[in-house]
Each structure stands twice: as C-alpha cells, then as structure tokens.
Simulated assay, not measured.
Amino acid sequence: MTRRVFRYVPYAIAQDEHAAPEYAARCVSGDEADCAAESGVCGHPADVEEWLRRHTQETRHTRYRRTFTDYAVLAPV
C-alpha cells in the first residue's frame, strides 16, 4: 500500500521584483460609441496621467478606463 502525506504550506503573494508593472488608459468618452483612443503601455502612472491630460485638452473627453498589470509570485512563508 502506498501512503501519501499532504501538508499545508502557507504562501505569501508579492509583486515580482524582476518584472516592471505596466500602466495604460483607454478613452471611453463618446455619445454613441467610445472614442477608444489609447495611451499605450507605460512604465509609470505619471506617463498615463500626462496622456490623459493631453487627450482631454485636445478632445474635451473626461472619462477613461485605466489598467494596471503586474506579475505576482508566491513564496512559502
């Protein structure tokens, strides 16, 4: 008979220090359809905020969908 022992191992979830997070925004202003202009992927939230300001100045659009993406790692504690 084969015997197996399973043990609970607690893990901590953390942002991967070796992979940079990514920030982006998409304009969702518009009457019948979204404008759909996009900032593209940026390495810092300030870059996206600057894109938002410029786009608002040019178009007077004020509604955006912002995204933040990163990598997570799990490590036993």
Rank of each mutant, 00 (worst) to 15 (best):
M1C: 00
T2I: 12
T2C: 09
R3M: 04
V5I: 11
F6Y: 08
F6Q: 03
V9N: 00
A12I: 03
A12K: 04
A14S: 15
Q15D: 15
D16M: 10
E17G: 15
E17M: 13
H18G: 11
A19Y: 10
A19H: 15
A19I: 05
A20Q: 05
A20S: 12
Y23R: 02
Y23A: 02
R26E: 11
R26Q: 09
C27D: 04
V28T: 01
V28D: 00
S29P: 03
G30M: 02
G30Y: 03
D31F: 13
A33G: 03
D34T: 03
A36T: 08
A37I: 07
A37Q: 13
A37G: 06
E38Q: 15
E38T: 10
S39D: 05
S39F: 10
S39H: 04
G40R: 15
G40E: 11
C42H: 11
C42G: 00
C42N: 07
G43T: 13
A46I: 10
D47P: 06
V48R: 04
V48Q: 05
E49R: 08
E49F: 12
E50Q: 11
E50G: 09
W51L: 13
L52N: 13
R53P: 02
R54I: 13
T56L: 05
Q57E: 15
Q57Y: 13
E58M: 14
E58Y: 12
E58N: 15
T59V: 09
R63H: 03
R63E: 00
R63M: 00
R65A: 09
R65Q: 10
R65N: 04
R65S: 13
T67L: 05
F68W: 15
F68M: 06
D70I: 05
Y71A: 11
A72L: 15
A72H: 06
A72K: 04
V73H: 10
A75Q: 04
A75D: 02
V77T: 02
V77G: 02
